[in-house]
Design a protein around this nucleic acid. Structure first.
Lengths: 259, 259
DNA sequence: TAAGCTCTTTGACATGCGTCAATAATGTAT
DNA sequence: ATACATTATTGACGCATGTCAAAGAGCTTA
């Protein structure tokens, strides 16, 4: 079992190793030992903490459960809380005055929400599926940063990682065509699914075609048409309950970069 | 004169106040007092350090000068160095195998380069104009992070800020039309120009139409046509040496969000 | 089982931006 | 100043994706 206090940390992302063997399905609660038993601890910022520190973190954490389509936070609101997703799927988005929407990210178990500018959230967040979140008071967490330097290092890693993802997404939005966008998206879900311990070839798509369109800079119809084309071509198989089987990741990779 | 050791720092960006009155035009060198006299110190990560700490920072810094179109770093290279721009303009970009390019950012004096994933750069960087850079060894800077906690806080602020900018850019790339993209770009340059102490109504555009296109997800021709339209409409005036005068920022703001 | 949602798929058509090509403007070197 | 190279602008045209509309599929409720 890995002890958080030996985390090394670097300016790059992925500084912490992921060596937990089993994932319990229990969610975090307010009990003192809650964080110790957290099923996504190895994925979350909490991986930077040792058992004693986790105990202290438990004291400022509250678990929140939300239903699908519930709002977690809204752009412009005072950024009083930070969140970690422990179960379910969240989407972050920004709106233009006329209602056009850009989804900037889908968040899964272990992902972190709440990086802000000037004490106000820079985006809105809503539940795609029912979700469970760990909620931290931002001011209390900031207080803990001084005591637990590895936590700050870990936050920097998280932010660096998100920055790299954001740059990939800019390349996708600015320079890829619809088919490449969709394949890139499926591959991204695949690798994130794998990191959480699931089969990379069978991914879950709980979000609607419209959500996918707003993430990829496309319309619902274009997303749907491209799903059909990939299916016809044998590059994907649409299964029940919004699952997609990817018979050949290499083929999808090729489709994600060249027309 | 502000002392770095009183910087408060928060999880949000813009934690440090910008209260320097005058900006000398000298660039940083390898002299021990170099960082103290740095013209962009108040804009850079160095604002998190007091005089004694800056002295130490000076010892691991080297100034680099490059000509227009020179390469600073390339995607995939080992991320051995971090940079601060002290003069000139830099562009960060990613390429697809077939040569399509997405510029993910233009960097000006005070801006920071080098956040990486897995010890390799996630993007390439090249000089748009002749530039001067402060180069830090990444390993040495990481060593300093343990001694100077405010520096780490500052890096987190920088990363948070970049993340917020990246999300704005995703909204632009995914959901704005060509005219809105161009107006948003001009307004962004305007406000960044203002933060560096210049006239927000007269901005410098040292990058080519093709660079602007690769930043906004457009072609050279579309960028050029939209410049012409904005000019005809009186929303902008093209001046000599790639300068643009913006007669009314409010008008541009309206044009940046609705068709 | 049927009715009534919502979401997805498919079709027909429109259009904003890309592509290709020519000319004009700008900068650089001789 | 003149010639040359590079970049910007403009025009003509095509196409990928958007728009509008209808049909089909999947869920939920009674």
């Amino acid at each position: 079992m890995q002890s958080g206090s030996s985390t090394t940390g670097t300016l790059s992302g992925n500084g912490a190793a992921h060596s937990f063997a089993t994932l319990e399905l229990c969610a975090n609660t307010c009990l003192p030992e809650a964080c110790l038993n957290c099923s996504v601890r190895h994925l979350a910022i909490c991986a930077a903490l040792n058992e004693e520190e986790l105990q202290e973190l438990s004291s400022i954490v509250k678990t929140v459960s939300l239903g699908a389509h519930d709002t977690v936070l809204s752009e412009g609101d005072p950024a009083d809380y930070l969140y970690n997703v422990t179960a379910g799927v969240l989407q972050l988005y920004k709106l233009l005055p006329d209602g056009r929407r850009q989804i900037t990210g889908f968040l899964f178990a272990g992902d972190f929400v709440g990086i802000a500018l000037n004490d106000a959230y820079a985006y809105s967040a809503e539940a795609v599926t029912p979700v469970k979140l760990c909620r931290f008071s931002r001011s209390k967490l900031e207080g803990m940063l001084d005591k637990f330097p590895y936590l700050e290092r870990r936050l920097l890693n998280v932010a660096s990682n998100e920055l790299v993802q954001a740059q990939d997404q800019m390349l996708l939005l600015g320079r890829k065509n619809a088919k490449e966008k969709l394949c890139s998206f499926l591959l991204d879900l695949s690798s994130r699914s794998e990191r959480r311990g699931s089969d990379p070839q069978l991914i879950s798509l709980p979000m609607s075609r419209s959500d996918i369109g707003d993430y990829l800079g496309l319309t619902t119809e274009t997303v749907s048409r491209n799903f059909t084309q990939l299916k016809t071509k044998g590059a994907i198989q649409l299964r029940e309950n919004g699952h997609v089987y990817l018979p050949d990741l290499d083929v999808l990779h090729d489709l994600s970069e060249e027309a």
